[in-house]
Design a protein around this nucleic acid. Structure first.
Lengths: 211, 211
DNA sequence: GTCTATATGGTGATAGAC
DNA sequence: GTCTATCACCATATAGAC
């Protein structure tokens, strides 16, 4: 009964190698992890590794690929954005988005991938490109959201792209600080507060602002 | 005449080792550079390295130390801030500060150190701490500057700490993007424009608004 | 402070038996 | 797909002559 529900799901060795590699890379950086380390944590010999991946670099390639794929598939449709914006208060909208984002960034595979890529972005152009692409994706999505907020008269009219830049670049920097703090189990309460203050200040000011 | 001006200045081997190490670390990361690499670029044998530093890690320690020392000594006095704020238009003040900052970040030793620490911040708590300390220093300085601007009626009254957070976190994220682009010689014109737009929008639209 | 020589162990990767 | 065995090289670091 290979497809019966309830069967033990065996994670294939290749996937376990990738997940262990991502975990280790995110803690020690790509160059701080050996193929030995990865195989030891999975429980196979190093020679077996090469039955699944042609090289250590192929793991990093897959980090970049999965990160980019994940980001693209996480982008909500214009219809969904429209509906969310129509039915939610702008401050509540951003507060709940950011809370979800913060939680995901330390509990999901994508959070791991983000941290790996952050570390490698200065020395590996593939990582640099992935980060830049993701930034543009975020800013585009933000531009769309602010457009919709203006369209539905949730906020007064302003250039939505400028609003997105202001809002997301600050949000990015605060989130990066959060990631460093969480990496060492340090207290994140203050930086989480700063993130919420950022939302309240920015959206609050915009709403008050005359065009 | 050992102290005569015009004498050829010999840079001591220890300093040449440190400068080469910083250069290489900033390109390939600490774990991507060997003591061999550093010694080759300086022109000595690896064994001689240990006459100057007890270990490879000691180089990284010095990166952190010089970074922290440099940041502390770069902090302007309250008097200087007061004078600059009194004699300069707020937008011009920030535009010229940022232009200098961007230029320094790709042409000075401190720029190198910043990039090294950025890379190591997720895996080495000493780097994480250095980054966090530097962020707090920047935000404190920003708070002081906005206080002075309010005091001298250059901008309307607002909570200066909130202004500093909003302004500097966004500035930080834009600058990080600039660093990635410059790392690979990619075009930085657009991100430089974004930095200036950030200043103009923030100071022009948000700060100059009535409280 | 430099060098040659060496210690000791880690590195990514391959050959070939089962 | 797994294993044992092995390769050629690289890593940090030390000993001791000059």
């Amino acid at each position: 009964m290979p497809d019966s529900p309830g069967d033990t799901i065996l994670i294939p060795t290749k996937e376990r190698l990738f997940l262990s590699a991502a975990e280790l890379f995110s803690k020690n950086g790509y160059n701080g992890v050996s193929v030995r380390d990865i195989c030891r944590s999975v429980g196979i010999k190093e020679s077996s590794f090469y039955n699944h991946y042609p090289s250590k670099d192929a793991l990093l390639e897959e980090v970049y690929r999965r990160f980019t794929d994940g980001m693209n598939s996480n982008t909500p449709s214009e219809e969904l954005v429209d509906q969310l914006v129509r039915t939610t208060d702008p401050i509540e909208f951003w507060l709940s988005s950011y809370r979800r984002y913060y939680k995901n960034s330390v509990s999901t595979l994508e959070g791991l991938l983000w941290r790996i890529i952050s570390m490698e972005q200065y020395r590996d152009p593939r990582a640099g490109e992935a980060i830049l692409k993701e930034t543009e994706r975020t800013l585009s999505l933000g531009t769309l959201i602010f457009s919709k907020m203006i369209e539905h008269k949730k906020i007064p009219p302003h250039d939505p792209e400028t609003l997105a830049h202001e809002f997301f670049y600050a949000g990015r920097a605060i989130h990066l600080e959060y990631l460093v703090l969480s990496a060492y189990g340090w207290d994140t309460a203050e930086v989480e507060m700063r993130s919420e203050e950022h939302i309240r200040f920015f959206v609050g000011k915009i709403v008050l602002m005359e065009a």
